[in-house]
Design a protein around this nucleic acid. Sequence first.
DNA 1: CCAATAATTCAATAGATCATGAAAAGTCCA
DNA 2: TGGACTTTTCATGATCTATTGAATTATTGG
Lengths: 127, 127
Amino acid sequence: MRPIAPTTLTDGAAMFGALAHPARLAAFRHLVQAGQRGAVAGAIAGASQLSPSALSFHLKELAAAGLVRSWREGRYVRYALEVARLQGLIAFLVEECCQGRPELCGLPVEDRPATDGVPAAPASARS
Amino acid sequence: MRPIAPTTLTDGAAMFGALAHPARLAAFRHLVQAGQRGAVAGAIAGASQLSPSALSFHLKELAAAGLVRSWREGRYVRYALEVARLQGLIAFLVEECCQGRPELCGLPVEDRPATDGVPAAPASARS
DNA sequence: CCAATAATTCAATAGATCATGAAAAGTCCA
DNA sequence: TGGACTTTTCATGATCTATTGAATTATTGG
């Protein structure tokens, strides 16, 4: 499962925008906890006090940003995280923030052979 | 420098919202590259094709989310990242996404003594 | 087929966000 | 002090986002 990072600032902004609402963040968290199996819309609605149409609206926003996918299962629609895409967003943020040096972001660092002081490549130019 | 994570979903959503615009993402990246010293507004504007008032608007959004701070230096105003806050946002995302298991997010994992199979604590309940 | 269930779509509305340009507020230096 | 420079603020209008409830689509089981 290779991370799929946003390719442009506009794409990245759209992904952050998808998370920029408490109801969507709550749905996002619900789907994180649901794991790869996902959760049906009704279960997410039940946990979030949202009307069906409001939930549908917000899930569509998450899906438009590529953070979530959905499929029909009988009369239900099941949603699950696009884990690779989410990993891509985190990688994007870490790259922007840390320029390839995760420890600057407060993240744990992988145990690797010494690189003779050669720093990791900085974030490349992006439109 | 301890990460300062968002404390509520609303706070987290506001932080994501601050990054949910290409111009702000560009300014954010500029400030990342500027480091702790920061950059004056004019330098950011010059690199971003934004009018002074548009830039001011977007920097204010970043500041309102706590991602950026500013201070006056003579006739300039200098902006710099709030690194701890940014680390907090990443920690929040990793916690939500990975429930304490960074490898699920595609992140490198700190080399630690074995934990006898006891998993890390999951993300705690948050309003 | 029909009724019940699950979810989405749609229209209307309210509110938030954004771009623009003019005006104003600080600061510096001659 | 006065003019130049940097940045912010403000008002306007345009566009985007969110909420609501009614209508619609899809599916199941009787």
